[in-house]
Design a protein around this nucleic acid. Structure first.
Lengths: 114, 114
DNA sequence: ATATCATTTCGTTATTTGACGAAATATAAA
DNA sequence: TTTATATTTCGTCAAATAACGAAATGATAT
């Protein structure tokens, strides 16, 4: 039960939904996500840790960055099912489409250097 | 987007999940739910209004009671899909099974009269 | 019409959440 | 090894949430 609540809580914030939808396109580091969402770095980091604890994403060290990506191969059936649904949902939302466009222009070598 | 958040928020509370699982078995009034969950009447009423606003349940006047029931025929695809999943999920949880057993013993003519 | 009773609304309180900036950590580059 | 920089953790604050009891509402039954 507790785990179900954790999973649904992870999905019940618009910034976290935006993050998940962007990660469908490609892995991203904290400062790339920050550049799109216009949030503080620490805020993005917190959102990512909630998504990770719920099982939706994985992190991977990559040079000086930490890349976050969807946990596509999860063996948790609930998470797997919800991630599948999420790929079908929200695709027509203006906000989501705008995020994805903005994401294409983001170059981690330029936008970092806080 | 706002609607997605509302839907997931509705599912991200254990008392609301317990309510939804009980409603799979039969419609219930506020004081029946209250008797199973051991919450104040007003608290149950609030949970029900959140579930209703998210589209998961409907209410129907029935004599002096208001019966709440699952909104099985909803035309909102997200709600429909999630309700389908919920019927498959949580069935083995001890808490849910206990709720359903307790529910069978509840007689609204006896347990109301607060 | 009045009394009864299920439900909702209101006001309050404690807890959780989402945000921030600053400090701590860890890795890469010089 | 020092410096730069990406990320996380910590402390704080404002807003949202979940709980309660009391009061208000609405419908039934006497």
């Amino acid at each position: 039960m507790r785990n179900y609540v954790k999973i649904f809580k992870a999905l019940s914030d618009s910034n976290r939904l935006r993050i998940l939808k962007m990660l469908e396109d490609c892995p991203m580091c904290v400062c790339e996500i920050r550049a799109v969402l216009n949030l503080a770095n620490s805020t993005v980091s917190k959102h990512l840790s909630l998504l990770r604890e719920a099982g939706f994403i994985l992190d991977e060290k990559n040079g000086k960055w930490v890349d976050y990506k969807l946990n596509d191969k999860t063996d948790e059936p609930q998470v797997k099912k919800l991630m599948k649904l999420m790929t079908e949902w929200l695709n027509d939302e203006a906000r989501i489409k705008a995020d994805k466009r903005k994401l294409e222009l983001v170059d981690r070598n330029k936008i970092c250097n806080i």
